[in-house]
Design a protein around this nucleic acid. Structure first.
Lengths: 129, 129
DNA sequence: GACAACCTACGATAGCCATAGTAGGAAGGC
DNA sequence: GCCTTCCTACTATGGCTATCGTAGGTTGTC
């Protein structure tokens, strides 16, 4: 068994990511909590297995407390999506973020408030250069 | 063997997507062309196998011309990335596009020209509602 | 018309992912 | 002290991905 990395760089698989969302929502939790909260009903041991994999991949750290392990994310949701987003930009748009943003603006139904917030963000970006 | 779908909804795997980029870049091409153009050197038959899979998944259509098959994409790069982007938004941001755009603006080094172009796009979006 | 070159179809393998079962340990109730 | 309950560790399986080799067909050249 290879040792887990301190700063995980690997990608999460579909199910792994779903479970990570549950953990991120709670900040810290046990296998049982994730199992009960996760909508798609899977065997308890399935959840346990995947969470152990997440630990081995370095995305979760476990501490033995009470009867059950308590798991905790080693990086925030934002930190992960930063990396994942970069990967998608690479993979899908050959590294060009601008067309990606444009497509997002075109395809997603953003509210007026969101649009205005983004306009502010853009303004500050433009001011900074 | 299940028949290929007219409108492919499945996801492309890593290598499949890379090969699709080569096809999209040329509009139409043969296994040999993709093999020669693809930077990571793989066996000819590897490329052939994957392109056949792409045909079975419905992303490429083949016509027998000359000696070799000529492959052609069944959907544009934009059409594919539209779907893929939606999937990422779902998967990573639970469907909320706004934070995704914000993170993109924060993380990617957009040029001043790109920023201004996005500002225009935003302006027109705001005007339209 | 035989040989070389090239092509496709099919089979093979190793690795990873999703999913789950079983075994064995800890802990609490009676 | 024993039985039930809950937990983790390990093992297993089917499916898909990446990668390639071989076999057999077609075509162009001398």
């Amino acid at each position: 068994m290879t040792k887990s990395k301190p700063a995980p760089d690997r990608q999460l698989t579909e199910l792994e990511l779903e479970l990570m969302h549950e953990v991120w929502n709670r900040g810290t939790c046990t296998v049982r909590e994730v199992h009960d909260a996760y909508p798609k009903k899977l065997a308890y041991t399935t959840i346990a297995t995947v969470m152990k994999v997440l630990e081995q991949k370095g995305f979760l750290s476990a501490t033995k407390r009470d009867k059950a392990h308590t798991y905790e994310p080693t990086l925030t949701r934002e930190a992960y999506s930063r990396g994942a987003l970069k990967h998608v930009t690479e993979r899908l748009y050959r590294g060009h973020a601008a067309p990606m943003v444009a497509q997002l603006l075109d395809e997603s139904e953003l509210t007026r408030a969101e649009l205005m917030q983004l306009r502010e963000l853009l303004k500050s970006k433009l001011a900074a250069r």
